[in-house]
């Protein structure tokens, strides 16, 4: 069978009829969604609505949780990544992830950034040096840490740690970056820096962000998807969602009338 055309000039991931289960509990119901290329797409919805689960499906992070099951398809680069034959390590290299709580390794700043490259077998110093400089510049961190690259990453501030994690994610040059509430533990100044960084990064990467901060979603994303009880209720341009949503549930949630 000829591979289905998944990606074109405007989309990078195509999710079709995705169901997801934790044991007997169904967390996602028939999700159909396309992720736009070189754009920021945000997932919003109340706690437990399935937005983080969907994010984790997109690079098979659920594999580390026992007794989970996904059906349907997530097409990325013409392959259904849900297939058991998928090279998960390779997939995660191309679809990177940044978590809510920054999780730098107990290593130097330099080693944190090159971690993914070393795992991929790259040990040439000139290549690693270049990757460190590019990634740290790309996350606007270079000037702040260039004189202490060999110091522990754990000495950085919360905002710097989160940007270091983003630098680590982009060092291996993925196609997509998944971000699970990347600013929820940051103060407004650090949040502003991460948001500015995301806007710069979309030139080279497609970004999907889960956020509880509606203003963040409206500030930075081009597309917004609203989830409720495991279902995708509405996806549209962010402007449409925040000025004139089509569904009453979306309106109730974003205006705070929900529940």
């Amino acid at each position: 069978m000829a591979p289905v055309q998944t990606t074109n000039k405007t989309s990078i991931i195509k999710i079709t009829d995705l169901d997801f289960f934790y044991g007997d509990t169904q967390a996602l119901f028939k999700i159909n969604l396309t992720i736009a290329k070189n754009r920021i797409t945000s997932f919003i919805g109340p706690s437990g609505c399935g937005k983080s689960t969907l994010l984790r499906c997109m690079n098979r992070m659920y594999d580390v949780i026992r007794n989970t099951k996904a059906s349907g398809s997530i097409l990325f680069d013409n392959n259904n990544i849900l297939q058991t034959s998928t090279d998960v390590t390779g997939l995660r290299r191309r679809i990177g992830m940044v978590f809510q709580k920054s999780n730098p390794f107990a290593k130097t700043i330099y080693e944190n950034v090159v971690y993914g490259l070393r795992i991929a077998g790259e040990n040439k110093k000139s290549v690693l040096d270049q990757a460190v400089e590019e990634s740290l510049k790309g996350t606007s961190l270079f000037d702040e840490v260039k004189d202490r690259l060999n110091e522990s990453a754990l000495g950085l501030s919360g905002g710097q740690m989160q940007r270091l994690c983003i630098a680590r994610a982009i060092a291996i040059k993925p196609d997509v970056i998944l971000m699970d509430e990347p600013c929820s533990a940051l103060d407004p100044k650090s949040t502003a820096k991460v948001e500015e960084l995301m806007l710069n990064l979309k030139k080279d990467y497609s970004i999907v962000i889960v956020t509880h901060n509606m203003q963040q979603s409206s500030r930075i994303s081009e597309y917004t998807a609203f989830f409720l009880e495991g279902r995708l209720m509405e996806k549209d341009t962010t402007q449409k969602i925040f000025t004139n949503p089509s569904k009453k549930e979306t309106e109730d949630y974003i205006t705070g009338k929900f529940g």
């Binding site: 925040f242 309106e251 974003i254 205006t255």
Partner: peptide, 9 residues
């Protein structure tokens, strides 16, 4: 309150 949607309109 940074209203959105119907509240904003």
């Amino acid at each position: 309150y940074q209203p959105v949607a119907g509240d904003l309109r």
